[in-house]
Amino acid sequence: MNSFDQTKVIAIANHKGGCGKTTTVINLAAEFGRLGLKVLVVDMDPQANASLHIGKTHPSRVDFTSAELLLSNVASLPAAIHEETNVEGVSLIYGSLALGKTEDELKDVTPRPSEELRSKLEPADGIYDVILIDCPPSLKLLTSNAMASATHIIVPVESGSQYGLYGADDLLKHIDKIKRINPSVRLLGALLIKHDERQTVCKLLESTALKTFGHILPVKISTSTKVNQAAVMQQSLHALDRSSKVAREFRQLAASLAQTLELNAAEEGGKNE
């Protein structure tokens, strides 16, 4: 059974690079925060792009990151959490280049190397409403830890690419493998990124993704130059330009997921301007 009774833990996973995992994590976190929810982002990617985007400190200058957390004792969680970030209402556990080395070390220091993150995050159950985990572009031990911790999994898929579903079968097999450790984890479905209803390749990929994953999230994310602009400015899409189409889509996606997951937003949250 999963150890989380009150907090929803969502792993954003796909071993294909460039499919929008970090963009999804950051903007879902920002929109959940705007709904009045208490949010924690856990950066499990050695590239630490989520940390570079929303962190107030460069990851190389952070002493206690997700790498140290994985190898520490259970009581170390508070040392890893940074409550002040560039996104209001969102806390962060930084990623680090050291995660690559940590992945190898875990196999030597623990009998259950895929379950270390879950045990370290357990004290956060009930403190945060949502924990979002940004996974690296691989199906190795870091992603396994994220999935073993998760109550739910979302798979971003690059809709505008003919190779968007490359390796999808391997990903689904890996999720099935993780269910031996975490039988209650639920695949919420594919999230179509860089989607354009007018393009034939997007229509074809949407149909194939539905057959492959069994479910597609009801809100699709469009292609937009605003995504890169927001990353450069270290802002959420809402903060950059809340009237943009892609910002509205992430707002709608967060609202849809909050309803699906029965997240109880604070009354003062949820402004949809």
Rank of each mutant, 00 (worst) to 15 (best):
E158P: 01
G17E: 11
H195R: 05
S224A: 14
E103R: 00
T151M: 06
L37Q: 07
G269F: 14
N272G: 08
K120A: 02
L261E: 15
D108H: 03
V246G: 05
S119M: 04
I221D: 03
V130P: 02
S159E: 12
L141I: 14
K194E: 09
F250V: 06
L97Y: 01
S244Q: 13
A98T: 02
N73L: 12
S144N: 04
K194R: 14
D170M: 12
A13T: 07
L35E: 00
G55T: 03
S256R: 10
P123L: 08
E103F: 02
K107T: 04
K179Q: 15
L28W: 06
L257N: 04
G270D: 08
K120S: 06
S91Y: 07
S72V: 03
A258L: 05
A254T: 13
T200C: 03
L69Q: 11
S138Q: 04
D63P: 00
S72D: 11
G55F: 00
P113H: 11
M1T: 10
S76Y: 06
R112V: 02
K173E: 15
L132A: 02
G189W: 05
L92G: 01
M44C: 06
F213H: 08
G89N: 06
D108Q: 02
P111N: 01
L217I: 06
A124Y: 01
V227F: 11
H82K: 13
